[in-house]
Design a protein around this nucleic acid. Sequence first.
DNA 1: TATTGTTATACTCTATAACTATA
DNA 2: TATAGTTATAGAGTATAACAATA
Lengths: 174, 174
Amino acid sequence: MTVSKTATLDAAKPPRPARKDGADGAGEGGGPLQMGELAELLGYSLKRAQLKVFEDFLRCVAPLQLTPAQFSVLLLLDKNPGRNQTEIANTLGILRPNFVAMLDGLESRDLCARMRSTNDRRSHILVLTDKGRAVLARAKKLVATKHEARLDELLGPANRLALLEMLAKIAREF
Amino acid sequence: MTVSKTATLDAAKPPRPARKDGADGAGEGGGPLQMGELAELLGYSLKRAQLKVFEDFLRCVAPLQLTPAQFSVLLLLDKNPGRNQTEIANTLGILRPNFVAMLDGLESRDLCARMRSTNDRRSHILVLTDKGRAVLARAKKLVATKHEARLDELLGPANRLALLEMLAKIAREF
DNA sequence: TATTGTTATACTCTATAACTATA
DNA sequence: TATAGTTATAGAGTATAACAATA
């Protein structure tokens, strides 16, 4: 199609190249699609919302290079000193084999350390390093002032809390 | 969730092998861990809830062997006849390259079919087969009577709707 | 015998580049 | 040249089996 010269018409995207009437059967318009009962499927919105929230988390905490999973590990280590890998991993729903590489990453950045337990020499007691504590503190501030604050702004504090309660209930009891 | 079949559930587990007093520094109890501010992190509960809901979806619709993603595709094809792969994939947040194998799976089970468009021979118009429509109808019934019904039972219809609205808002505007 | 951390492995999801055939 | 479908590929995330050290 050598239209380019005369042009001007094809702004960005010509969605409708002169439809031959009801050509392809029932094809409606060329615009947005009908979501149908997808709009009432809780799991669908749940997944899309989760992706958005994680995406925003990453953005907000980008200067510290922490994923939601890594953040949750640091948080748990801080609140639960003296625990081993199995306990931390189980609590977060991470399988022990998969937790190894994750810890390797955190440890190589000097955010936490493994210490052989004196009681049970099979266990690795996990501890936050000073740097780990510092990074966690900064991350918590970013999450609170940027990430969660944005959610508060969108939903309102009361709704945000109601949402959290319901999600926690599903995670717990469903 | 992690918990597969073998059940990692903290149910059966002797957490305290005769602690020698305050041995390992600050290690508190041997029971469940402190969640700390993880309990207030929306993203955390969002993710755990999403996994539970998808898990239940799989169970409820197991006789039809449909994943949430496959179900959403069938639903969309039914409501939007005459659309091509790119349009369906984009609407569901699936990348075109990844949509190919997914369609292959559905088409090999005779649930949908690709038809070359007469207007634009590059496009594949997607259509549900009769079997696809039948399976979709059965899936919708299972989802409504088992899956969503269980959520209604847990939260109550009003709360369930409020939850859905908030999740949709996050997915849309966040 | 059982458990902790680990390795190896595999399977799913997701993401990007590049090819082909059409336009 | 641009777009639709496709291929190849790479990277996360997640799952299971099995081994060494220790209990």
